[in-house]
C-alpha cells in the first residue's frame, strides 16, 4: 500500500490478505517521504487492522530517510518492519535502533519483528548471516525485480532467472525456521500466469507470496490453500498420532505406511494453514 495514500491505507485491512505492507519506500516519491511517514504513523495508531499483520517497509538506512522512518514508525509499534536491500550490517543496525526505541517507549523487548527484503546479489549470497544477525527476523521476502536488475538479467514471467534465488531463500529460511515469502507477480491482469508462478514458488518450498494488487489475493490463497483431501489426510495423521501416544507406541503406521516426524510436521502445518484460512475450525 502506498504510504501516502489515505484511501488505500484505511481500506488495507479488509482486503483478505494475511499481512499488509504499508510502504514508505518505492511507492512514495522523494518529495512526499515526510508526509507518508506521518500518515502511516497515524494510520497505525488509528485504523483497526484487526488480525491482519501490519508491516511497514522503511527506506534503506543508507538514504536520508531510513533512520527517521524507524524513529517515527517503531514508536507506534507496527507488527513488523520490512527492511529493503537487506544485508547483515543493515539488519544489525535496525535491530539496535529498535532495542533503544522499545526501551524508551515501554514496548516489550523484541516485540517488533523484521522481514529481510533480499533483493541484491550480496544479500542473497549472505542470506544466512542476514537472518542470523537478529532474533527479530521472522521471514525473508524475495525481491525479484531489484535482484534481477542487480544481476543484470531480464526478469521474465517464467522466472527461470530467479530459480536459484528462490531455492536459496527457501533453504536458508527452512534452516532457520522462518517464513520464505515469494516475490510478487507484476502483471496484475494475468491471473493464469499468477497462479502458475505461485504454484511454482510453492513447489520449491515458499511459505507465502506477496501481492502487488489486492485483486491477486484470492488467486494466491487458492494456490497456497491445502486441498480437502490434503486436510483430511493431515487430520487422520494427527488422530493416528494421538492414538499411538495414548497406546504408548513410538512408531505407528497409517494405511500401511509408517508415519515419521516429517509426515507429522507436514500434517501439523497443513492443519494450521487450513485453520488460518478458515477451511476448518
Amino acid at each position: 500500500m502506498p504510504g501516502n495514500n489515505p484511501g488505500m491505507l484505511q481500506n488495507a485491512g479488509i482486503l483478505g490478505a494475511d499481512s499488509i505492507i504499508l510502504d514508505l519506500e518505492d511507492a512514495v516519491s522523494l518529495t512526499e517521504k515526510d508526509s507518508a511517514r506521518v500518515l502511516v504513523r497515524e494510520a497505525i495508531k488509528n485504523v483497526d487492522y484487526s488480525n491482519v499483520e501490519v508491516i511497514v517497509r522503511i527506506n534503506p538506512l543508507d538514504t536520508e530517510f531510513g533512520a527517521e522512518d524507524i524513529n517515527v514508525i517503531a514508536r507506534v509499534k507496527p507488527d513488523t518492519i520490512l527492511v529493503p536491500k537487506a544485508d547483515e550490517a543493515q539488519i544489525k543496525q535496525v535491530d539496535e535502533m529498535l532495542n533503544k526505541i522499545e526501551a524508551e517507549e515501554g514496548i516489550e523487548a523484541g516485540a517488533i519483528k523484521l522481514i529481510a527484503l533480499i533483493e541484491t546479489a550480496y544479500g542473497l549470497e549472505t542470506i544466512y548471516d542476514v537472518i542470523r544477525v537478529s532474533k527479530r527476523v521472522v521471514g525473508v521476502l524475495l525481491g525479484g525485480e531489484d535482484l534481477t536488475s542487480d544481476l543484470g538479467v531480464k526478469r521474465t514471467k517464467e522466472g527461470e532467472e530467479i530459480f536459484y534465488a528462490r531455492n536459496r531463500v527457501v533453504a536458508a529460511c527452512k534452516a532457520m525456521k522462518i517464513d520464505a515469502i515469494d516475490t510478487p507477480f507484476t502483471d496484475t491482469n494475468d491471473y493464469e500466469g499468477l497462479a502458475k508462478d505461485a504454484a511454482k514458488a510453492k513447489s520449491l518450498g515458499m511459505t507465502g507470496k506477496s501481492a502487488i494488487n489486492p485483486r491477486q489475493i484470492d488467486t494466491i490463497h487458492s494456490v497456497y490453500a491445502p486441498t480437502e483431501a490434503e486436510i483430511k489426510h493431515a487430520l487422520r495423521v494427527l488422530d493416528a498420532m494421538e492414538e499411538a501416544k495414548r497406546e504408548g507406541k513410538g512408531v505407528f503406521s497409517l494405511d500401511g505406511k509408517m508415519v515419521d516426524a516429517p509426515i507429522i510436521n507436514r500434517a501439523t502445518t497443513t492443519v494450521e494453514l487450513a485453520k488460518i484460512l478458515g477451511l476448518i475450525r
Binding site: 489515505p6 508526509s35 500518515l39
Partner: peptide, 15 residues
C-alpha cells in the same frame, strides 16, 4: 479525509 488523515496533513504542512 478521516480525522487521523486531517491531523497528519496539518502536522506535515506545519513541519
Amino acid at each position: 479525509a478521516l480525522d487521523y488523515t486531517i491531523s497528519a496533513r496539518v502536522e506535515t504542512a506545519i513541519k
